[in-house]
Amino acid sequence: MSDTILKADGLKKHFHLGGGFMAETKVVRAVDGVSIEVRRGETFAIVGESGCGKSTLARLLMRLLEPTDGAIEFEERDIAGIRGRDLRELRRDMQFVFQDPFSSLNPRMSVGKLVGEPIETHRPELSRAQRRQEVARLLNIVGLRPEHADRYPHEFSGGQRQRIGIARALASNPRLVIGDEPVSALDVSVQAQVVNLLHDLKSKLDMTLVIIAHDLAVIRHMSDRVAVMYLGQVVESGPTDEIFANPRHPYTMALLSAIPEAAHGRARTRLALSGETPSPAAPPSGCRFHTRCPFAREDCATRIPELGPATTESRVACHYWQDIAADRPAAGLTPAAGRSEGAQRRFALYEAATQATTPNPKTAANAEA
């Protein structure tokens, strides 16, 4: 069995806007030639600014959107063009956790029905009594009580609703779970609990996670590998520790530089970007980042960089990353000891995710009530 569970090769998604009377049709290149590989059992993160295409990419991988071009393989099977029963069977093995835990849950359905619906769909061999037992078990493992099955989504806090969404995603016993910013709508303390829950369930249930996020603290302490997206393309990818300690692409450097840090007696050089993010309907020629890159050279406007190897595990799409790295040897994050007390407390919340402790249902429920 291959170590790769999910693979995208040259994936594209173009949207056509306009085209009405006296209007010009515009092509928005939301995802434009993305190639990634997700290994079995890992947590793979996709990070970037709002509008970079990461949520569109997640929906393409899940087949919630039809790709314009490119290939998607799940467990060495091409899934880019499957339909009907094959697509329903795919839903059993690949599940999605949405960003907003309230709008993703039907307010007219009780929690028991919400969690029980995918069990009935994908596991028809279970009797009604067995389905009720399975609903209770799923609620328990995400830190809720079995009696919560009789309540409705509006009766829960944001963190509890996200736990319901996770329980619903786990109902079909999936091998891969994709989370589209699953903690961004939650308070920081609740974020830590949900991050810890996802990390624990990944190990306990032998799952693979793909996490979409813009909070780099979540990414740093939750993922094994990371892909950085800019304007529909992956500009850098590799092991999380390596990317955060030694970023090579100027855009990755700018993202890490934007993380608030304070260290007494020592100034920190920040990499500020100029201008606005270009429209995906009219991306710049050559390197798409050259209009904002402080290291751009004349030929960056005409030459398209390929996502090539930087080390055995890392890849970067930049013509001059080696020259940039030579001039900026300390572009990564400050070591933990150099952070301010407030920053250390924030990072410590996510550090708990690496300990993979089993959540206590009563404690979790009381903490979020």
Rank of each mutant, 00 (worst) to 15 (best):
Q133D: 10
P250T: 12
E181S: 11
R128T: 04
G338P: 00
M207L: 13
A267F: 00
L17A: 08
D93C: 11
A348H: 02
R328I: 07
L176T: 06
G165K: 14
Q191R: 14
P182A: 13
I82M: 13
K202G: 05
V234K: 11
G84C: 09
G238L: 00
T311F: 08
T43H: 09
R266C: 01
A365I: 05
A171R: 03
P153D: 04
Q133R: 15
D9H: 01
I219F: 09
L231A: 09
A364Q: 04
F15M: 10
F244C: 15
A169C: 08
D9Q: 08
P309A: 14
L216E: 00
P153W: 07
Q355E: 12
D69I: 11
G112D: 05
H16V: 12
M253A: 02
F295R: 14
L138P: 00
G143D: 13
D32W: 03
A365R: 10
A129S: 01
L186Y: 07
R92Y: 00
R137V: 03
G286M: 15
S55H: 02
K7E: 12
F15P: 06
C52Q: 09
P239V: 01
P283N: 14
T311C: 12
P359H: 05
E42K: 14
L65R: 04
H199S: 06
A263W: 09
E147T: 09
Q133V: 07
K54N: 04
P329E: 02
S35V: 09
S184E: 13
P101C: 08
R303M: 04
A337M: 06
I36Y: 08
T354G: 10
G265L: 05
V111L: 14
N106L: 04
D100Y: 11
L17Q: 11
E75N: 08
D327H: 11
A281S: 14
N196V: 01
R83F: 10
L60W: 05
A331M: 06
I178H: 11
L307Q: 04
P247N: 15
G286N: 14
V234G: 07
R83S: 15
V226Y: 10
F347S: 06
G308S: 06
R220H: 02
L144D: 04
A348L: 00
R85V: 11
Q133M: 11
F98E: 02
T252F: 14
L255T: 10
L209C: 04
E117W: 09
L138R: 00
V97L: 10
D180S: 06
K204T: 11
A364Y: 09
A254S: 07
E76H: 00
A71S: 09
R39P: 13
L114V: 12
S237T: 03
R346H: 13
R145G: 02
M222E: 03
V226K: 08
Q162T: 08
A23Q: 15
R108T: 05
V226I: 14
